[in-house]
């Protein structure tokens, strides 16, 4: 007799084995955007393998060269190879995007959870604060902070964009937490002795992750956009740190010399990346909504 047989309860009718699960398909996943995004990510990650020139090297004999066999995407007004710069600078742009989003999401999750489980008055206070925060234009805040911090570098720019972009995610986290915190399975978990970190990890986070995924992806998009805007305006990364934004900041000079490739090429990459992220974000939002209505 096995242990299992020893412990069977008299009279209990065993349930038939469960039917095999159907394989879930990624319904409506934007494949083209996904593949393009993956390509861009991979190329930027392994930029060293692709680069044909030193991206920061100022080739003073070859500036404003149109795309040709040697300089695939041409060179900019300072004589830098754009093809190499795209991959190398893309890495910087993406780093800022992800780092800023990581900072925003961390702040948002902590702030939102605290507000969600806090007593009514504290919650109200914290939410009013986020609303005030949200009503100040993000770019203005970034400019202000950047002015205080002085000359921007990758880290400081990420921090600045990160600490200004958490409020809307925090609001969603807070709403979700407030809904879940009194649900019976959280009460059950508390009865079993579950402490706050356990409840956050096992019960709260899995529930709000689905609903903030979309916002997180959009936050990456926003951060990359902010970096480009700032650098384009000459208030972000300086010219010598190559990013898609700082490459675009040369466009004014490029317009004077009719060098379309200096504007079009980094611009096209930027637009493609942002569009891919938007499509994926929209897919995530739709699938989160679908799950909810399936409950």
């Amino acid at each position: 007799m096995t242990e299992k047989e020893l412990f069977t309860v008299v009279g209990i009718r065993p349930e038939p084995p469960a039917p095999k699960k159907k394989v879930k398909r990624l319904k409506g996943f934007p494949w083209i955007s996904g593949i393009l995004l993956a390509l861009i990510l991979l190329c930027c990650l392994f930029a060293e393998l692709l680069m044909t020139k030193e991206p920061g090297y100022l080739d003073l004999q070859n500036f404003n060269v149109a795309p040709n066999g040697e300089f695939l995407f041409g060179t900019d007004t300072l004589g830098r190879d754009i093809f190499s710069g795209i991959w190398y600078g893309g890495r910087i742009s993406l780093t800022i995007g992800f780092l800023a989003t990581l900072i925003s999401t961390l702040i948002a999750v902590v702030y939102g959870s605290v507000s969600g489980i806090a007593p009514g008055w504290l919650d109200a206070l914290m939410m009013r604060f986020t609303e005030i925060f949200l009503s100040i234009p993000g770019l203005l805040m970034v400019l202000f902070l950047q002015a205080i911090l002085g000359q921007a570098n990758v880290l400081s720019l990420s921090v600045v964009i990160g600490v200004t972009g958490w409020a809307s995610i925090a609001k969603v986290v807070r709403t979700e937490v407030r809904q879940i915190r009194n649900s019976e399975y959280v009460v059950a978990s508390k009865c079993m002795g579950g402490k706050f970190p356990h409840i956050l990890r096992k019960h709260l986070a899995p529930n709000f992750i689905a609903s903030i995924m979309f916002m997180v992806v959009m936050n990456v998009r926003g951060a990359i956009g902010s970096e480009s805007t700032l650098s384009f305006m000459g208030m972000g990364l300086p010219l010598e740190i190559i990013s898609w934004g700082s490459m675009l900041s040369l466009s004014e000079k490029a317009l004077l010399t009719d060098s379309w490739w200096i504007i079009i090429i980094p611009g096209a990459f930027l637009v493609t990346l942002l569009m891919c992220l938007t499509n994926i974000g929209n897919y995530l939002r739709k699938s989160a909504n679908r799950k909810e209505s399936n409950l």
Binding site: F7, T8, V9, I12, R13, P14, E15, P17, A18
Partner: peptide, 9 residues
């Protein structure tokens, strides 16, 4: 198994 359900669940 004690409550009458097997591992497939």
């Amino acid at each position: 198994s004690y409550v009458g359900m097997d591992a497939s669940y």
